[in-house]
Write a protein that binds this DNA or RNA. Sequence first.
DNA 1: CCACACAATGCACGTTTATGCACGTTTACA
DNA 2: TGTAAACGTGCATAAACGTGCATTGTGTGG
Lengths: 257, 257
Amino acid sequence: MNADLPLARRDQIAARLADGQPVVAATLAREFGVSEDAIRRDLRALAAEGRCRRVYGGALPCTPAFSPVSARAEQDGPLKQALARAAATLVQPGELIFLDSGSTPLALVDALPDEFELTVATHAIDIAAAVLRRPGMKLVMLGGCVDPVVGGALDATTAQGLAQLNIDRCFLGACAVSASRGLSAQHAADAAFKRLLLQASPHSTVLVTADKFSARAPHRIAPAEAVQCFVLSPEAPAAEADALQALGCSLLRAAAT
Amino acid sequence: MNADLPLARRDQIAARLADGQPVVAATLAREFGVSEDAIRRDLRALAAEGRCRRVYGGALPCTPAFSPVSARAEQDGPLKQALARAAATLVQPGELIFLDSGSTPLALVDALPDEFELTVATHAIDIAAAVLRRPGMKLVMLGGCVDPVVGGALDATTAQGLAQLNIDRCFLGACAVSASRGLSAQHAADAAFKRLLLQASPHSTVLVTADKFSARAPHRIAPAEAVQCFVLSPEAPAAEADALQALGCSLLRAAAT
DNA sequence: CCACACAATGCACGTTTATGCACGTTTACA
DNA sequence: TGTAAACGTGCATAAACGTGCATTGTGTGG
């Protein structure tokens, strides 16, 4: 991280707490490269200001509620995080990556490395909010009328904004995946947008939880071979995986949780 | 790199701080080829002008880039909610309202009536997220490169998107308010956007907490008479309120908490 | 041309602050 | 109930701090 100003460290810890994240003293000590004593002093000071609640092993935010991302990430949790970690290995420093809407791409935000100077583009509100919490990343928001179901902008303006980006890589969530029927989505507008996104990206990755293979969805996005890489969970059926590979798609297996 | 003018050095340091970068005294001393004493004097001067926060080892930007909106979100809770409730009474059914970035407009989202079939437009990520949680509202998101300090899109694309909206009413937060100096903002791009927003709206309302009257900010947005209505907190100084009214602005007092 | 004010700087001094380590105590968990 | 980790406290150290003072360079008025 950047400058080792003591108070800056304290601010960063305070920011995490204000964000609703609990902090662990030992972890922070390693992360900031100082002894646990120093961290404990910080936490004590913050607690004295009423900015957190001191507990054995670390500290908790004084307002424990309300933290949309972390809550969701915890709950849907380990599986999507594992997919996200695997997908994050594909990203190269300095790239402009586009994150599609959905909880799996959302998990990817927290898995992206800090030091890569990435630019993240998205049309999804919750993903933008998550990126905003990551210091080192630039954020480009696509505007338009927001579809309340998808949680992101989805209209002609959005498509137009997409066309103005030089995307290096995109990550999609899909409603349904099959080697024979390709990718499908629940909503027509969402499918159309994903189709444009695939066309606009020289390299596209789809994050797939195992249940997506058995799912059906009405709107065809593209054939599977339009995607360069699929990230699969460990319990994905081998038959489907082999079929995707036979189409020329590369596969990435997430580590078992 | 360096002209030897001392003031030029101070300006460069100020520029970095305005950019959100923390600075380390020892590093700056080596970089500019002067003693740490000189740097410390600069930092002290800048801090005295309110342009940074002095800390042990260097200085931090007064609005740290890394803990953007989340930290200041709920600090003045009840007060801002009271302002929001007062402002919400101005809204008419079916309108397209634009919400500026800031914690006060954010509070307004939850105060808006459900049954009015409103369309809310914004360029701020957190406000969009809040609107998304309200069922009966339509949401229009303005896109563009997102300013991490403001927490919303702020570039030419955003301005263009604004021009394509038929806004009925807009609600602004301001960094500083004064009858004589008008509205001011901390950041140039933010000020420019607010200026466009005022021009694009037939009716504009500014939500003002009492501390905004004593605050200073470098970038002038518009004179106070460019705003139709100010919503004031109960403890706002009467002198300032009278001065605003003398300029032809209507006032709305929030109920005491 | 000189004297002087003035601002910026570097240096020396004593003071404050943050840190790490050592010690004994408390806490969580098996 | 026992154990290991986390805790708080005291102390020593090094870095950063503020202040006062001498030096330098520049511009101005006598």
